[in-house]
Design a protein around this nucleic acid. Structure first.
Length: 504
RNA sequence: GCGGCGCUAGCUCAACUGGCAGAGCAACGGACUCUUAAUCCGUAGGUUCGGGGUUCAAGUCCCUGGCGCCGCACCA
């Protein structure tokens, strides 16, 4: 770095501004290449004509200096392109810059596109400007393109911790990382588009909430000074969105962050992105169709063929998805018949999957432990598991014809829960009772902030929630699946890490 | 929270049973006007994650703290 400060001084002494104010960039690097190919379409390579003129900008990715001339690659968001800078061809400022450039510097180049003797499409620099001087060397690896045209990186920037802590460097240096986040943006936009098209209203509900609910998780707690009151960061959007349906907003959705103060591992980040949507006059059956449609649309944005490689398996998203009831799934993959199993059997089954604390768990937790351990890992292709035990689903309507079940389903794919949906409970009295049961269960957990039932939510239900279907989709999990990443941190730009004073 | 593994130059990694801390790339100086992991000659670069201990001698062994990764637990 000391050396680059010296270079910086040198640049200033020569009267060149190392931090430019603007540059009239007209073409992306891929775009510039395509313009050349377009112009010479139909010609053999040796008959191609020079041109067109382009104006490009990017980071210096490699330099091959020959004294009087220089080859370099620039890199931008789209890709990379070679430039050729030659004395007496480039303008005087560009000529001076030839010996002052470092890897990572931002430069702007104007000139015609041509093809070198070795066949690479290249921009001949007539003008070259320094746009921003890099003081800290980027952790570039060395790249080569092998005989198959594959990009091979030697000693790249691969340390996970450094990559997450310095995501800017990660993104600047590793194109495949950039691709993941561009895919993420495409998918989220597509989900919005699909819902907008179906006349859902996108809304924003509070993140700071006086009461937390809609899921069971430990919340982050904060406080508001002026109001002198305790607030929670939301753990789910659910209860506010359903309030909106009470308010005649009959189709709503929100894509936003939820916050859960639980452990961190490869599939959990304390803040994560959820899509929640609610549709009046629909039940969970219609939500099943919608779930298939939304996920299929998302898959289309990333994999045209509808197949995804994930953790060594091929996940096939083609529709329709298999549908199996929760009880049948437990019977089939865990050998457990809930209709006949008593508490004793459940404890035993839970212990068999490694829950040593099985004695202390209530029935729903026992069942869920077995389901997570024995059933979910078996489900590679997306599968709709429907009709959950009502104890596991405090916000879902009871199933028609069977009070012990709820009209709820999850979509499991690649072994992970992807979608959770149900026919929303709209009976205020039933809701009140289930809140009471939930509060009772929560009292047993000392680690949770004490919380009474959400009276205002029940009040809203008393005004009348129409029959409503609701659906939640974990956007981060979806992106893991679609991009084949087994760590959630690879699909979150700035995952939460413990603060590190040592980062210099 | 528990267990295992890891942390050495800007990056990627070496360093045997404790015995002079090294390489490639990057950087710096020089040569080279069609190269592409450019090449050639030369130079510099270190709190071996922090603190303590054992030893004639510690990157290496011991204790302690930090951070990360993996697994487990928690996350109905």
């Amino acid at each position: 770095m000391r050396d680059r400060f010296r270079t910086l001084q040198e640049i200033r002494e020569r009267g060149i501004e190392p931090y430019a104010y603007d540059f009239d960039r007209r073409h992306g690097l891929e775009e510039a290449r395509e313009r050349y190919l377009e112009k010479n379409r139909g010609r053999d390579e040796d008959e191609e004509e020079e041109g067109p003129e382009v104006s490009i900008a990017g980071r210096v990715r490699s330099i091959r200096n020959f004294g009087g001339s220089m080859f370099a690659h620039l890199a931008d968001r789209e890709g990379r392109l070679q430039i050729y800078v030659k004395q007496d061809v480039v303008d005087p400022e560009g000529e001076e810059l030839m010996e002052l450039l470092d890897l990572g510097d931002w430069v702007g180049v104007r000139g015609p596109v041509f093809r070198t003797n070795t066949g690479e499409v290249t921009v001949r620099a007539r003008e070259m400007r320094l746009l921003s001087k890099t003081l800290r060397p980027l952790p570039y690896g060395k790249e080569e393109v092998d005989d198959e045209g594959e990009r091979v990186v030697h000693s790249g920037f691969t340390d996970q911790e450094s990559r997450y802590r310095e995501r800017y460097a990660d993104l600047a240096v590793n194109p495949e990382v950039r691709e993941i986040f561009e895919a993420r943006t495409r998918v989220v936009s597509r989900l919005r588009r699909e819902l907008d098209r179906r006349r859902y209203l996108e809304v924003e509900t509070p993140i700071l909430q006086p009461q937390y609910g809609g899921a069971s998780a430990r919340p982050f707690v904060t406080e508001h000074h002026a109001l002198d009151s305790r607030l929670y960061l939301r753990i789910a959007d659910e209860l506010y969105l359903k309030r909106l349906v009470v308010g005649n907003l009959d189709r709503v959705y929100e894509i936003g962050k939820d916050f859960r103060n639980e452990g961190i591992d490869r599939t959990h980040n304390p803040e994560f992105t959820m899509l929640e949507l609610y549709r009046a006059f629909a039940d969970y059956g219609e939500m099943m169709d919608l779930a298939e449609e939304l996920v299929a649309a998302a898959v289309e944005e990333v994999h045209a063929d509808g197949e995804v490689e994930f953790e060594g398996e091929t996940v096939n998203f083609s529709r329709p998805w298999e549908r199996v009831s929760y009880l049948e799934a437990l019977r089939r993959w865990a050998g457990l018949d809930l209709r006949e199993a008593d508490d004793e059997d459940l404890v035993e089954a839970a212990r068999a999957v490694g829950r040593e604390d099985a004695d202390e768990l209530d029935r729903p937790r026992l069942i869920d432990a077995v389901f997570s351990a024995r059933v979910e890992p078996e489900l590679t292709d997306p599968t709709i598991v429907h009709d959950y035990p009502v104890e596991l689903s405090p916000l879902a309507k009871r199933k028609r014809g069977d009070d012990s079940l709820a009209e709820r389903f999850e979509v499991v794919a690649g072994g992970y829960e992807l979608v959770n949906a149900f026919s929303e409970l709209n009976d205020p009295l039933d809701q009140w009772e289930r809140f009471a049961e939930q509060a009772e269960a929560q009292r047993l957990r000392e680690d949770l902030p004490e919380e009474g039932p959400d009276e205002d939510y029940v009040r809203a239900l008393e005004y009348g929630l129409p029959p409503t279907g609701g659906l939640g989709l974990g956007v981060d999990r979806l992106m893991m699946l679609l991009t084949g990443q087994s760590s959630i941190r690879e699909v979150i730009l700035f995952p939460l890490l413990r603060p590190d004073e040592g980062t210099a």
